[in-house]
Every structure is written in structure tokens, then in C-alpha cells.
Design a protein around this nucleic acid. Structure first.
Length: 764
DNA sequence: TACCAGAGGAG
DNA sequence: AAATCCTCTGGTA
């Protein structure tokens, strides 16, 4: 049979455990595969209840049990007599690693003798996909699945529709007589392999399951829905399918830094990826529309719901190639992968590699060990003191994949660290020695990952952008990049199996050594180095040509280990490095202009969300003008803006300051302005929790800033404090830049027009 | 003026 | 459920 693996489960017959492989070929088939749960034991010959078999494998016992649920009690018994290993690898995940079965990959599956054989098959089979979204009746705020019905279910995919139990006459709406009719029709029609939801783990699926129970609807047509508590909220699994929660996927991208948004609502994320706005209704009053809405309102509700399903589908399709690639890279189901952290991805990859190398996995740390690791910080990167002011003709160079390349080049691994009796060693600046005789697990993994990624990038260049093949290759290199970039963090992650404080220390120490060395070599060539952070060097070309920069790069790279490379990042005609309060140049805060006029701003107020648009937009314009050499225009712009603020010509939105609540209101030791604003929101009856981004304005009046910080939504007739915004937002942001050119605040405020501002304007 | 708590960006 | 380096504001004494 040819097909792809879309889900994996487990069943039991007597004392034999089976893996259930859900294979989608022409139709969905389930293959039962006998597979014994096992773990390792170092101690006397194991005996006792629950043990099916114990045989010596190397120096340890391989202990086989009848069922995965037997593992906990057997391991607790044996733990008293010796050491146990690999006892906490989930049964189905263990199967995928051991048999090297790759999810969603076309195979020829051959059953026989109780053991399925997989071989490459060239069936061009792609999983079918659909998105769904439910709307619920909510007269008391949050709907209660015990009593509040589902009023609508929308689906979107190859086909799509809205199922509802009111008479709504739109082409994509199908009306039924009851909630039960709606759910049953939805279940009957929905047979796709991959089901996308937006936050379905925490809402749509648990809610649907409860409604099905309440209405006595069987799960058979969909597949058994199981809701389990995970580390980060609920996980909703549908047997025989892949439930892909797009919201989870987006949060993963956010955590690894591939996506950065102020909020991750479906509307916001959809706009970010597609540029399209979708119809948004205030779902707080959904129940009112359902009870007594006009025909138009009900149609709008159906349209909104349908668009939610469509947006979820589009985003799901966008993410699927990446999750397929990640899934295939580590031999784990997309369901699990989409709910992993980047460290879990790395760990899965290491387990797969370790199994191939015939090595055992270290155990996860206990709580005591975990705490000890957390309390052992690792010294990080080197940041060079910048040369402040305006500079011309800057060249930026940076190390490609600095930490991964260092780990490979110096064979940094827990197994090579200070290993005894090796013929030679790499010596870290911190004193650790890494054996050269045999490649370590982590360097080997990284070498394969970076090597494969380089090959894929070559293929990618030959492919036409946007094609199916291109998307697949792009996703594959993206998955490999995620693995490579997360590996250093993984080594230093306190819960990691392959944690090593010394390996992490050595890696960053070599990083500091190389970046300083690169700067020193550039200086030897006659370049002036003005800045550098972690893996980058900023040079002044001075009178030298671009060719001389490239020549320096080539020569310096010849001196580096093979896997390491200092790359050319770009030439910048101008750049400005600003000075901080104390009078010295600030690290991590600068702006550059590219040869094509594109401005890049780092660390300054403009890129920070906790500054008002007034300050941010003006700073951006000032930076642009200054880098274009138009300082006088920049000064005039600021004078004009001050005038507009004073005359009340600036829109209210430009005064909004956004700050995230990092903890719940009661947990703050000191209450800053955003906390005060959040407290006011709460008094007004809003649900304000940790994670909320508080939008507030500092209004006119007396007292501390906090006394005058009001959330936009309950602003009423209060007016922004113009002088606060001039002296504490606008001026600090623009003076950062202009004071580098010798401009004073007085020049901007206008001679002779002394105002009360002078007394409390921030000093220079 | 010195210090702390808190937020958020860079790489 | 990655870790570190760094800046800056507002509040307090």
C-alpha cells in the first residue's frame, strides 16, 4: 500500500502493545504494528511483575514491558536497585525514532510477519487540509459549554461553508434545524487529513467535544477527540487526523524570533502575512445578534465566521511546509512538533542522531540538578564600545552562524569535553579541552544540518520563487536554520538532556575571541573599527576602496577554521551612533543608511513599542534627514512638530504609549504608569491579565506620571499633557540624534521663547 | 543623586 | 520551557 503517515496512536491486545499507523493512501487505513515499550537499566538482572523481557545490551539491561502504562511502575521498582535510562521517551515517539519512519513522506508500506516494512514510494500524495472555526452563544461573557450552544461552524478548504441553525440566506451558508444538526453535518462533511484551527487547542475543540457529549453525538465520524493538559495549556488531538493549531504555530515563530507582533489575534496575524484586513465584529454581543439581530446582522455574522475559517486556512497553508519540514527533520508528528519549544526540536534531533550512532540518551535533570543549573550563569557575548557621532562609508561584516560554526570547528560536545587519553585537543580560552579524536554528537548534528542547508540553498537559487518545490525547499532550509540557531541555547538550557555549562562557556568564550580577533585584524589593515556586537564588525573604509574591504575579508577567512566565515553584510554611506545620558556612546543603539537610501534603525526609540508615535515618527524622520545630510531640515521639522503639539494639531493616537503587563496587577512591587493605567481599566470592569498590552495616554493635571496615565478606552474628555509629550517624548527622542551634530534643545524650542518647560526639561 | 524595578531591544 | 548584554524611564529615599 502506498500512502503517507498522518497520525500515530497506540492500542493493546493482551500483553502485546501495538502502534497504530494511520496511513492515507487512496483511502485511510490503519496498520497495527507490534512494538514493545522498553527502557534501559544499569544494575542486577531485573526481575519482577510487569517485566516482559530483560536482555543484556552492551553494559546495560534492555527491559521490555507489555504496555506503555507498565513503564512507570516497573521503572520505580528498578530505580531502587540501580540506574534507569530512556524511560521517559513517549511510546509513539520512540517508535518513529527507532524505525526511522518519517511523517507525511510517501512510503510503500508492506505488512508481513508482524513487522511493517517501509520503502521509498513515489506517490505524489499531499495531505488534504481544512480549517474550521466555531461561534458560540455567550450571554454571560465567556460561553459555558454546559449550556451555551454552538450557533455556527465555518469550514474552509477545497470547499467551505457555514453551518448554522438560523435561516441565513447566503450562498456559502447551510441552515439546519438544530445545533445537533449543525454539528452532525459538519462532522459528516469534514474528512480531511489536516485540520487547522486558531486556538482550537484551548477553545474550539474542547468546546465542540463538550457539546457533542451534551447532545449525545458520537465521535466516530471525526475521530476520537482527546484533550490533554500540556505544559502550555491544553492540547487537542483528533485520532486519525492532524489537528494543527495555527495559533500555536504562530507563537512558536514568535518565541524563536521569526515573527514579532504586538498581539497574535487572528486578525493581526492574518494582516501581517497577507496584508489583508478581515471583517471584524465585536463578539461580545454575538449572542444579541443571534437572539434579535436583523437579517443584515446575521449575514454579517456568518460572513465574519466564514472569513475566520478562511484566514485560518490561509495561515495554516502558509505554515504547513515549515512544520512538515521540521516534522520530517526530527521524525515526529506535526501535531507534536507544532506544540514544541525550539529546545525540544533540538533535543528530538539529537535523540534521532544518538540512536543512529548507537548512543544512549542522558536523562533529564531532576529538580535539584535543574535549580543548580539555573543558578550557574554563562558569560555571554562581547559588545564593543561604539565611537559616537556621524560616520561616513561604513562596512559591516559578520560571522555566518557564529556559535554553530564554533561548535563544529572545535568539536564542542559533552562527550569530548576534557575526555581522557585523546591524541590531541582544542583548547578553549576558558581552559576546557575538547578531544579531536572522535566527532561529538552535537558537532556531528550541526555539521549535517549546516551542510544540508548549504546544499538546499544552492537548489533554491535554481528554483523559481513561489513554486511548490521552492516553498518546500525554503521550508526545509528554514527548519535546518531553526535547529542550528537553537543549539547553543539548548546546551545552556537547564532542562536539556545534553546540557553542558562548560560547553556553553567555551562556545561564547571562543565567540568573544574571534570577534575581537576580526576587529584587530581589520585594524592591522588600516581600517578603523567603530562598533561590533556578538558576531559583527563595523569598519570605516576611510580612503580605502570597497575592493580592499573584500580583500581583507578573503584573507582573514583563509586564517579561520574551515567551518567559520566572516561574511560581507553591506556598505553604508552614513551611520550615526548616539551618546547615552552619562556622555559615553550607547551600545546597541544606532542608525545606518544603505546605498539605496534604506534606513536601518537599531535599539533607538523608533523601534520600541513603549514610546509614543509622536516621538517615534518624528525621530524616524529626523534620522532619515540627518543621514541624508539635511540637518537644517531636521531641525525645522522638530520646531514645526513642537508647534503642532502646542496648537493641538496632533491626533490623539500619536500620544498613545503601549506597555505590556508582564505580571498580574497584584504582583507588582512598584506600580509604574502602565500598571496604574491597567488598574484603572480593571476598575472600569475590564478583564486585565498578565500579557495584556496596556495602551495609555499621560493627561494634563498635577502629580506623578502614574497619577495621570489613563487607558485610551476610558480617556473621556481628558486631554494629553502637551508639555509632558514635548519634554519627555519628543525632545529626548530627537535630541538623541541631533545632539550628535551639536544641536541644542534651545535651538529647537526657539530663542527667547522661554517657557515653563525649561525648568524640567531633561538636561543634556 | 543614587538606586531599584520593570520593560524591551540586539544578536 | 533559551540566555546574555545593554539602555532607559519612573518611582523612592
Amino acid at each position: 500500500m502506498d500512502g503517507i503517515l498522518i497520525d500515530i496512536g497506540h492500542s493493546q491486545e493482551g500483553d502485546q502493545s501495538y502502534i497504530d499507523l494511520y496511513i492515507r493512501g487512496k483511502k485511510l487505513e490503519v496498520i497495527h504494528e507490534a512494538f514493545d515499550p522498553y527502557f534501559y537499566f544499569d544494575g542486577p538482572k531485573p526481575a519482577g511483575g510487569g517485566i516482559k523481557k530483560a536482555e543484556k545490551e552492551g553494559k546495560w539491561w534492555k527491559v521490555t514491558v507489555a504496555s506503555p502504562s507498565d513503564v512507570p511502575k516497573v521503572r520505580e521498582q528498578l530505580k531502587k536497585q540501580g540506574s534507569i535510562y530512556e524511560f521517559d521517551i513517549p511510546y509513539t515517539q520512540r517508535f518513529l525514532i527507532d524505525r526511522d519512519v518519517v511523517p507525511l513522506k510517501p512510503y510503500h508500506w508492506q505488512e508481513g510477519g508482524g513487522r511493517v516494512k517501509v520503502s521509498e514510494a513515489n506517490v505524489p500524495y499531499a495531505p488534504t487540509t481544512v480549517a474550521f472555526d466555531i461561534e458560540t452563544y455567550n450571554p454571560r461573557g465567556m460561553p459555558d459549554a454546559e449550556m451555551d450552544p454552538i450557533v455556527m461552524i465555518s469550514t474552509y478548504g477545497k470547499s467551505g461553508r457555514v453551518y448554522t441553525w438560523k435561516d441565513i440566506r447566503l450562498p456559502f451558508v447551510k441552515s439546519y434545524s438544530s445545533e445537533k444538526g449543525v454539528i452532525e453535518a459538519f462532522l459528516k462533511d469534514t474528512s480531511e487529513d489536516i485540520i487547522y484551527t486558531y486556538n482550537g487547542d484551548n477553545f474550539d475543540l474542547p468546546y465542540l467535544k463538550k457539546r457533542m457529549e451534551a447532545l449525545g453525538i458520537s465521535e466516530d465520524t471525526l475521530g476520537k477527540v482527546s484533550i490533554r493538559a500540556g505544559m502550555r495549556g491544553m492540547k487537542a488531538r483528533i485520532a486519525g487526523r492532524t489537528h494543527f493549531d495555527v495559533y500555536r504555530g504562530m507563537m512558536f515563530l514568535a518565541r524563536i524570533g521569526a515573527l514579532k507582533l504586538p498581539r497574535y489575534t487572528l486578525e493581526d496575524v492574518y494582516k501581517e502575512f497577507t496584508g489583508k484586513e478581515k471583517l471584524d465584529i465585536d463578539t461580545k454581543y454575538l449572542w444579541k445578534i443571534w437572539d434579535s439581530g436583523t437579517r443584515e446582522q446575521l449575514e454579517e455574522l456568518a460572513t465574519y465566521s466564514f472569513q475566520d475559517a478562511e484566514a485560518t486556512y490561509e495561515l495554516g497553508e502558509h505554515l504547513l511546509p515549515l512544520y512538515t519540514a521540521l516534522s520530517q527533520m526530527i521524525n515526529q508528528m506535526p501535531f507534536d512538533v507544532s506544540r514544541m519549544s525550539s529546545s525540544q526540536v533540538v533535543e528530538s534531533l539529537l535523540m534521532k542522531m544518538a540512536f543512529k550512532r548507537g548512543e544512549h540518551f542522558p536523562n533529564k535533570p531532576g529538580e535539584g540538578q535543574f535549580k543548580a543549573r539555573v543558578n550557574k550563569p554563562v558569560k555571554g557575548a562581547f559588545v564593543r564600545q561604539p565611537k559616537p557621532g556621524l560616520h561616513n562609508d561604513i562596512a559591516v561584516l559578520d560571522f555566518r552562524g557564529l556559535y554553530p560554526s564554533i561548535i563544529i570547528s572545535h568539536n564542542i560536545d559533552p562527550s569530548t569535553l576534557n575526555a581522557e587519553g585523546c591524541s590531541s585537543y582544542y583548547k578553549a580560552p576558558t581552559g576546557q579541552r575538547f578531544c579531536k579524536d572522535r566527532i561529538g554528537l552535537i558537532p556531528e548534528m550541526l555539521k549535517r544540518v549546516t551542510g544540508k542547508r548549504a546544499k538546499i540553498k544552492v537548489l533554491l537559487k535554481k528554483e523559481k520563487e513561489g513554486t511548490r518545490r521552492w516553498k518546500q525547499l525554503y521550508a526545509e532550509q528554514q527548519a535546518l536554520k531553526i535547529a542550528a540557531n537553537s543549539t547553543y541555547g539548548y546546551m545552556n538550557f537547564a532542562r536539556a538532556r545534553w546540557y553542558s555549562h562548560d560547553c556553553a562557556e567555551a562556545t561564547t568564550a571562543w565567540g568573544r575571541k574571534y570577534i575581537k580577533q576580526a576587529a584587530a585584524e581589520a585594524e592591522k589593515r588600516g581600517f578603523k573599527v567603530i562598533y561590533g556586537d556578538t558576531d559583527s564588525v563595523f569598519l570605516l573604509r576611510g580612503g580605502k576602496s570597497k575592493g580592499e574591504v573584500m580583500k581583507f575579508l578573503a584573507d582573514y577567512n583563509d586564517s579561520l577554521p574551515e567551518e567559520m566565515e566572516l561574511e560581507f553584510e553591506g556598505f553604508y554611506p552614513r551611520g550615526i551612533f548616539v551618546t547615552k545620558k552619562g556622555g559615553i556612546a550607547a551600545k546597541k543603539r544606532y542608525a545606518l543608511i544603505r546605498e539605496d537610501g534604506q534606513v536601518e534603525i537599531k535599539g533607538l526609540e523608533f523601534v520600541r513599542r513603549d514610546w509614543s508615535q509622536l516621538a517615534k515618527k518624528t525621530q524616524q524622520q529626523v534620522i532619515q534627514l540627518v543621514l541624508e545630510g539635511k540637518a537644517e531640515e531636521a531641525k525645522q521639522l522638530v520646531r514645526d512638530m513642537i508647534g503642532r503639539v502646542r496648537r493641538g494639531e496632533v491626533p490623539l493616537d500619536d500620544y498613545i504609549i503601549k506597555t505590556q503587563l508582564k505580571r498580574n496587577i497584584g504582583k507588582y512591587a512598584s506600580t509604574g504608569p502602565h500598571v496604574r493605567a491597567a488598574m484603572r481599566l480593571k476598575e472600569a470592569g475590564e478583564d486585565v491579565k498578565k500579557g495584556a498590552v496596556i495602551e495609555y495616554i499621560v493627561v494634563e493635571g498635577a502629580g506623578k506620571i502614574g497619577d495621570r496615565s489613563y487607558p485610551v478606552r476610558i480617556l473621556g474628555s481628558r486631554k494629553p499633557d502637551k508639555e509632558y509629550y514635548i519634554s519627555h517624548q519628543l525632545l529626548p527622542a530627537v535630541m538623541k540624534i541631533l545632539s550628535e551634530l551639536g544641536v541644542t534643545q534651545g535651538e529647537l524650542l526657539g530663542e527667547g521663547k522661554q517657557t515653563g518647560l525649561w525648568r524640567w526639561a531633561p538636561g543634556e
